[in-house]
Design a protein around this nucleic acid. Structure first.
Lengths: 252, 252
DNA sequence: CAAACGGTGTTAAAATTTTACATGAAAAAG
DNA sequence: CTTTTTCATGTAAAATTTTAACACCGTTTG
């Protein structure tokens, strides 16, 4: 009765984002407004919703609202990246140990990650926090100086750090790619780290949305033949796809 | 004027998470409540805050609430912790190298930190991100396994990590304190780290709000005589204060 | 100069929320 | 098998908060 109703309210709020008391009264005609108020109060105290004047909204909704202007500024290829992240997430095996970088694509991957027993190494602070939401996932963050622009760590001593850690799989992404210059990024320490990761991982999956193609950044950290799987979107040029598949690299 | 005020409100909200109209009126005594209301309305429309009955809260705060029990703690004793953080921030010298833990009090300190040339080591992910907002401040994050409940890292190899890093000052806080059991916390790896920090730092400042007094947590990482300065709030018991000052420890 | 405008203040009205107390049903105690 | 206690709920008044309406004033603009 009470429990159920509260759960129902939480679900409704999750779906609709925001509800007024009036709307809630329509959904629950057999209880008084006061009861609904008390329910909302309880939900608020348990941190699932926040009450606003006139009703309440789900925390998720608030996150959405805040996320929108953010992504407008920085990432315009959101949809592609989410799709790429979903493809990548589907490739992760339970129980494995993997590395993930700290870039924006990795951020999407973090959100799409299945919540099962995996060890994830990352140099991304935001990625690490996002991954912390997953109950069964073990997150290990690489230490080092924090780069303020992308909230990831870089440390020249990463090599030591990796000395006795192991991961089979690395899922990373690049800021730029051309067949001649390979996969490149804008930071030297980051490139150093990724090169290290490349050597350390048995399999290397590269996430690359097609907007990165044809661009060149200062530091190359991998070439075509270094990777095992290329995860990209539908706009990936067919001739490039042929280049990769001709070297036995799976493009998906 | 208007622009400035609105920005200031946004900043305040960012720091304190939530503010009531009453509190805002104290901060802006020269404008009417109605004006502040209108400001909040504007901020809401731009997606930076959401208005709740009695005032408003920053979206960041809401996002945190959704996170974990982590911020359930932050909600309580907010004012005391902010004051303590402000006192601590005032003690930081430009150009120094320091350690900060990853707890909730440290989070407030991160927000209050002056934006000048300092090197800050921390094991707190949220703290590190917060500190990244400061242009002139250098943040170094300790690597390790991420503890999901408080978003800080812990690593048994921290000792290696510290091998060739130095800091004069450590500003940390404890989850519990009694004169007999000293300063304690709930995690063994965290205690290990803090013990290490204590040895490594020339000066140790302890932030302790009075709600922690009389509590005991499983792992003691420092005793009364280990610290140099105790930063606390007005409710700190006088007899304890005498205990500290009798050992030449500054209580403020 | 006068009109228009943006920002602000004041007050009353409207809406919402809280509080306090009452009810009845179910659970616990005797 | 009563009696008490507890709990969820309802009701209505009180308190609080928000909105709306209008007035004011310094600036800008035609």
């Amino acid at each position: 009765m009470k429990r159920d109703r509260i759960e129902e309210i939480a679900e409704l709020l999750d779906k609709r984002g925001k509800l007024t008391l009036e709307q809630l009264e329509v959904f629950f005609p057999n209880v008084s407004q006061m009861t609904l108020r008390r329910d909302l109060l309880q939900l608020e105290q348990s941190g699932k919703i926040i009450r606003v004047r006139g009703g309440a909204m789900s925390v998720k909704e608030v996150q959405k609202v805040s996320g929108e202007p953010y992504t407008k500024k920085t990432a315009i290829h959101t949809d592609e990246k989410i799709k790429i992240a979903q493809k990548a997430a589907a490739l992760i095996d339970e129980g494995c140990s993997m590395f993930m970088d700290g870039g924006t694509t990795a951020m999407y991957l973090a959100k799409e990650m299945p919540d099962f027993n995996v060890n994830v190494f990352t140099n991304g602070l935001a990625v690490a926090i996002e991954l912390s939401n997953k109950k069964n996932l073990n997150v290990i963050v690489l230490g080092g100086q924090v780069m303020k622009d992308n909230l990831s760590t870089a440390s020249p001593v990463a090599k030591q750090y990796f000395a006795d850690t192991n991961f089979e799989l690395a899922v990373i992404s690049a800021s730029a790619f051309t067949p001649e210059n390979g996969f490149s990024c804008g930071s030297q320490v980051e490139a150093d780290l990724l090169r290290l990761v490349r050597k350390k991982a048995k399999s290397l999956y590269m996430m690359l949305d097609s907007s990165k193609i044809g661009k060149i950044m200062p530091y190359t950290f991998a070439h075509v033949e270094d990777i095992d799987v290329l995860i990209t979107d539908d706009n990936f040029p067919p001739e490039l796809k042929r280049l990769f598949t001709s070297k036995d690299i799976v493009v998906m």
